[in-house]
């Protein structure tokens, strides 16, 4: 089963915790919300999900 990273900007409060602890530096904040950083690789490790206080970022199995 393939996985994907999902961002829920409606719930993101822009604390930056996911950005700081992403092992690949694959995230950034733009206008107070998290987004994928261009030119980086997301390895779908889910570290962001574990520490997101707002459940605004998570890794989930892809609906086929």
């Amino acid at each position: 089963m393939k996985k994907e990273l999902i961002l829920n900007s409606a719930w993101c409060k822009g604390c930056g915790i996911c950005v700081a602890f992403c092992p690949k530096g694959a995230l950034e904040l733009a206008r107070g919300k998290v987004q994928r950083k261009e030119g980086t690789d997301c390895i779908l490790c889910g570290q962001c999900e574990l520490r997101c206080p707002d459940y605004a970022i998570f890794v989930q199995e892809k609906e086929e």
Partner: peptide
């Protein structure tokens, strides 16, 4: 689709986002 399985299963997404400050 913007709610993870874990949050959907054990929380009440209709009451989220929660009231706490950014970074709490």
């Amino acid at each position: 689709v913007n709610v993870s399985d874990l949050v959907f299963k054990y929380m009440r997404p209709e009451h989220l986002p929660h009231i706490w400050c950014p970074g709490c």
